[in-house]
Amino acid sequence: MNLSIPVIVMAAVIGLVGIGFYCLLVTRNMIRVVVALQIIVKGAMLALLLAGRMRGQLALGQSMALTVIVADTIVAVLGLALAVQVKRRLGSLDLNDLSSLKR
């Protein structure tokens, strides 16, 4: 089988998104949650670039990826800021301790 660049990138996209979601499903640590989100977004960015390239509109793909980076960074910062507050108020980053709102 011919391992061309698009195929490799596509595999990477699927891999990153899959790993990220798996991590979200199993981790109990807030920092890891933020990291997992980052991993998924990286996969999506790769996909954007790949699609731009395949369509011959790499510039458009790149500009979109840049926008996604900006948005994603804000979300990551927010997530970490919340993590800091959680640690301060609850003394723990464990998601189990962060499940008082239920039912």
């Binding site: 998104v17 979601f21 979200l24 807030m30 949650v33 989100l37 998924i40 977004v41 996969g43 999506a44 948005a71 979300v75 927010l78 997530g79 919340l82 993590a83 507050q85 959680v86 108020r89 609850l90 962060l98 499940s99 008082s100 709102l101």
Partner: peptide, 17 residues
């Protein structure tokens, strides 16, 4: 409030991806 914020953030980020 923090807990709700965390959940909202993670879920909406996952959705937006």
């Amino acid at each position: 409030s923090l807990e709700a914020g965390v959940k909202y953030l993670v879920q909406s980020a996952a959705g937006s991806v």
